[in-house]
Nucleic acid binder design. Sequence first.
DNA 1: ATCGATGCAAAGCGTTTGCACTTTG
DNA 2: CAAAGTGCAAACGCTTTGCATCGAT
Lengths: 155, 155
Amino acid sequence: VAAVTAVESRSDQEQRIHRLIRDAGGRLTVTARTVVAILIDAHQHLTAEDIIDEAQRRAPGIAPSTVYRLLQRLEELGAVEHIHSGHGPTFYHLGGQGHVHLLCGTCGTIIDIPERLLAPAVQRVHRAHGFTIDLHHAALIGRCATCAARSPLAE
Amino acid sequence: VAAVTAVESRSDQEQRIHRLIRDAGGRLTVTARTVVAILIDAHQHLTAEDIIDEAQRRAPGIAPSTVYRLLQRLEELGAVEHIHSGHGPTFYHLGGQGHVHLLCGTCGTIIDIPERLLAPAVQRVHRAHGFTIDLHHAALIGRCATCAARSPLAE
DNA sequence: ATCGATGCAAAGCGTTTGCACTTTG
DNA sequence: CAAAGTGCAAACGCTTTGCATCGAT
């Protein structure tokens, strides 16, 4: 027993999600396969619009509403998560790793950081107020290093 | 010199904001006075809809668009801040005290906590990633003590 | 053949905008 | 009376929904 499954292979991931859909009584339609593939291929956070555009490129005729419905279902199955970003659109990504998302309000870049950095603060808030902060569900808004360097002024 | 101006009186606050508007070349219209009064009276966070409803109650005929424009202007003047809340509408409140907002995703309650509790984490992220988190601009979403007690299940 | 999934178009929500008119200073 | 502010209604961006049809199992 040497190297363990540290990272799931692309096709393992794809098969796992396909099974997830099937086991829930769902059907592996062209759209479902396409959207799942897009999400796996993208190692970034995509807006619904990104996904819709790419899906239409790969399989013309796919409707926006279908993609939205699919994303919803994938989210119920626990395969996908979404994060809110202030005014703008919602971002979607494959779920589970427990990242915290930092969204630069100036340039729109999203940075992923490990939850660990914020865990003590979350615990402190929990102890003091009984409130359990869920850092996955909404991006933390602020300013990235590049934008801060470019212009030192505020938002 | 005994008790200092720890808290600004209601009319001080009102006059300060009125002056802010006047100094910027603005005019003290009925709507402006009304909305400012509503914001001062409310010791909670209001949605635009809350403010619009109350404004129309106090001075019938006020249009939603006017309230939105006013809130924008007050924000540019630094008198008002808004916070995003996941899917839902934006909340408005008088600005400046540096609170962090915890929004319960289950019951919608907003809890204010001092920034201090989260400051170390913000600094740690800054040192590690150069990213400056702005905790005022978006609520932290999670689960309040009451809702967590009521049903231990997830979102 | 059954039931889930789809495309389309319309509606939804919260918010913004264009424009002619009213108010304020 | 000039400039700032207003109401109205229409448009906006993102997302959801109703419904008849299609297609996977």
